[in-house]
Computed example of a mutant assay.
Amino acid sequence: MSTDPLSTGPLSTTAAVPGSRRRAGRAALPAVLRGRRGRTGAVLVALVVLLGLLGPLLLPADPYQQGREALAGPSWSHPLGTDEVGRDLLARALYGIRIELLVCLLAVPAAAVLGTLLGLLGGLNRLLGEAVQRLFDLLLGFHGLLLGLAIALIVRPGLGSVVVTVVLSALPAFGRQARAALLAQLARDHVVAARVLGVPRARTLRRYVLPNVTDAATALLAVAMAHAAKIEGGLSVLGFGIQPPTPSLGTMINTGSKYLFLHPGYALAPVLLLGLLVFGLTLLADSFNREKLR
């Protein structure tokens, strides 16, 4: 019997309705938002996103503008005070949210698309599929922060190295999820029927397998975004992420930790914002997973 998963050899069949999974995928988000965890996570994420998008537009302060009041306490003009060179901390914290969102929206979709395509390679060529799985094993051997440190040393610290780190860290999760969904779908009646009728492999993957793989990857998006926010924060805290003077929550935590007793709000405000974002995304991911298991 051929070892090619899309060969014409025999496969065990399991009854399934092709459209049922897609309908379940479309109904997943409303079902998640009906649960308490999902609602709480959505509210937290929406709150942080709105602060990042609307806050800098409503605040008159420039996050890059230096002033004479260094490390000043909270006041009407500076609600969180100022940093070591007189810049408004609230303006920088809200602008830093945009950096987190930029990393999540750039790196995670790229990892999802690339990881899914790599995971599906096994459906086209067995040797390529095995090579990709070994690549995933190699990437899984590195912690996200260690991988980020290595990339920052090879290239240079900054937004680009953070995005590359997040993409490489998230690839194995999306790739293995796609491969598992591929192997499950290949046993479905409609896929077996398409293969027997001589439908080309690429068309079979695109028409019958890919929609179900997309549904399976949906729950991973929130997990990957939470992981991306943690990686950016961790690398920036260590000094290998976003570089000054660009404000990010991680760089603010890094610098603010030096003045923790003198000016607690310097580090605690970005810690709170980063924590709310990660916690909200984690709740959403948990709700998606619970809904998928039902």
Score class of each variant (00 low, 15 high):
Leu238Tyr: 10
Leu273Gln: 02
Ser77Gln: 15
Met225Phe: 04
Pro63Cys: 06
Gly256Trp: 05
Pro10Asn: 11
Ala193Gly: 09
Leu220Arg: 05
Leu127Tyr: 10
Pro18Leu: 00
Leu293Ile: 12
Gly175Pro: 04
Val191Lys: 10
Ala180Trp: 00
Leu293Met: 15
Val49Ser: 08
Leu210His: 06
Thr251Val: 15
Asp62Lys: 13
Tyr259Ala: 12
Arg22Gln: 14
Arg23Ser: 15
His190Met: 11
Gly239Ser: 02
Thr116Val: 12
Gly9Leu: 13
Gly129Glu: 06
Leu149Glu: 05
Leu57Ile: 06
Val108Asp: 07
Ile253Phe: 10
Phe136Ile: 00
Ser236Glu: 08
Arg290Ile: 09
Arg290Ala: 15
Lys230Gly: 13
Leu54Ser: 00
Leu29Gln: 04
Leu58Arg: 05
His227Asn: 14
Leu268Pro: 02
His190Ser: 08
Pro211Asn: 02
Leu118Asp: 05
Gly122Arg: 03
Arg156Thr: 07
Gly73Gln: 08
Val223Gln: 13
Leu94Ala: 13
Ala224Tyr: 04
Gly233Gln: 06
Cys104Pro: 03
Ala228His: 07
Gly175His: 00
Arg179Ser: 01
Glu69Tyr: 01
Leu235Ser: 05
Phe240Val: 09
Leu183Ser: 09
Gly38Pro: 01
Ala184Ser: 14
Val17Thr: 14
Val271Arg: 04
Thr13Asn: 09
Thr282Trp: 07
Leu139Ala: 05
Ser75Leu: 12
Leu54Pro: 02
Asn212Lys: 04
Leu140Ala: 06
Leu147Asp: 03
Thr116Asn: 10
Leu6Asn: 08
Gln243Leu: 08
Glu69Ser: 12
Val223Ala: 14
Ala173Met: 03
Leu128Ser: 11
Val278Pro: 03
Leu205Asn: 11
Gln65Asn: 11
Ile97Val: 15
Ile231Val: 09
Ile253Val: 14
Ala24His: 13
Thr204Met: 15
Leu277Ser: 03
Pro10Lys: 14
Ser287Ile: 03
Ile97His: 10
Ile99Cys: 11
Gly280Val: 09
Ser12Phe: 14
Val278Arg: 05
Arg156Ile: 00
Val43Pro: 04
Ala110Tyr: 09
Leu153His: 04
Leu220Gln: 14
Pro211Glu: 02
Leu197Gln: 10
Tyr266Gln: 07
Val278Tyr: 03
Arg207Leu: 12
Ser257Cys: 01
Ala72Trp: 10
Ala112Gln: 09
Ala28Pro: 04
Lys292Glu: 12
Asp286Gly: 08
Ala228Asn: 01
Ser7Met: 07
Ala267Gly: 12
Ala61Tyr: 03
Leu11Gln: 14
Leu57His: 11
Val32His: 09
Leu106Trp: 02
Arg176Tyr: 00
Arg206Lys: 03
Ala152Leu: 05
Ala202Thr: 12
Pro109Arg: 02
Thr165Cys: 01
Val85Cys: 06
Asp137Lys: 04
Pro18Glu: 00
Gly250Val: 04
His143Leu: 00
Leu272Gly: 02
Val132His: 09
Gly52Ser: 05
Gly86Asp: 13
Leu182Thr: 08
Arg22Cys: 11
Leu262Pro: 07
